[in-house]
C-alpha cells in the first residue's frame, strides 16, 4: 500500500488534521514556559485524543476521557497550579536547561524504538470493522463479568486515594489549636 493510496481515503485526511493538532499541542505542553498555558494545551491534546478514540470506534472510552480528564483532572491541575504559586505569566526556571540535551536524546531514542517496532510488527495492517462502534453493553458486561475483580479493586483504590488525599493535604493543627478544639 503506497502513501498515495493511503491519502486517497478521506478518513485519513481527518486523521492527519486531528493527529497534527494532538502532537502540536502535546509539544506545547512540554515546552511552554507558562504553567497555565501548559495545562490548557493538555486540554487540547486530550480533546484530540478523544476524537481519535471516536475514529477507532471506541465511543464510550472517548466520552469517559472527556468527562474524567477534561472535566475533572484538568480542574484539579489548574487548582494545584493556582495554589502552589499562581504566576499566571511566563515563569523563568520552569525547566532545567542542563537536562535538555539528555532529555531530547532519550525521548528521540524512545520514539525511534517504538515507531520502528510497531512498523516492523504491523506493516500495513488495517483496523477491522471501522465504523461499527463497540456498544456500551459489551463493555459493561465485560467489566462486571470477566473483569469484576479488577473493577472492585479499582473502586477500592479510588476510595483509598480519596481518604489518603484528604489526610495528606490536611493541615496539621498547632498545639494551641488542638487544645482549643479539645476544650470545645
Amino acid at each position: 500500500m503506497t502513501f498515495a493510496d493511503w491519502l486517497s481515503d478521506p478518513v485519513n485526511w481527518v486523521y492527519l488534521a486531528i493527529g497534527a493538532a494532538v502532537v502540536a499541542s502535546a509539544f506545547r505542553v512540554v515546552t511552554s514556559q507558562n504553567v497555565v498555558h501548559a495545562a490548557l494545551f493538555l486540554v487540547a491534546t486530550l480533546a484530540g485524543t478523544a476524537a481519535l478514540f471516536l475514529m477507532m470506534s471506541a465511543e464510550f472510552v472517548a466520552w469517559t476521557l472527556v468527562l474524567v480528564y477534561i472535566g475533572a483532572v484538568i480542574v484539579l491541575f489548574l487548582f494545584g497550579i493556582m495554589i502552589t504559586r499562581a504566576p499566571l505569566n511566563v515563569e523563568p526556571g520552569l525547566d532545567n536547561p542542563k537536562a535538555r540535551p539528555l532529555a531530547a536524546v532519550v525521548s528521540l531514542g524512545l520514539f525511534v524504538l517504538l515507531a520502528y517496532t510497531s512498523l516492523q510488527a504491523f506493516g500495513s495492517d488495517q483496523l477491522t470493522d471501522v465504523g461499527t462502534p463497540t456498544d456500551t453493553v459489551t463493555l459493561a458486561e465485560s467489566l462486571i463479568v470477566r473483569f469484576v475483580l479488577p473493577f472492585e479493586i479499582v473502586g477500592f483504590v479510588l476510595l483509598a486515594a480519596l481518604v489518603g488525599g484528604i489526610t495528606i493535604a490536611r493541615r496539621d493543627l498547632t498545639p494551641v489549636e488542638e487544645e482549643e478544639r479539645g476544650a470545645v
Partner: peptide, 16 residues
C-alpha cells in the same frame, strides 16, 4: 485506516 498511524501518534506522545 492502518493500525500504525495511531501507534505512531501514541509513540510521539509518549516520547514527548
Amino acid at each position: 485506516m492502518l493500525v500504525n498511524q495511531f501507534l505512531i501518534v501514541a509513540a510521539l506522545l509518549f516520547a514527548m
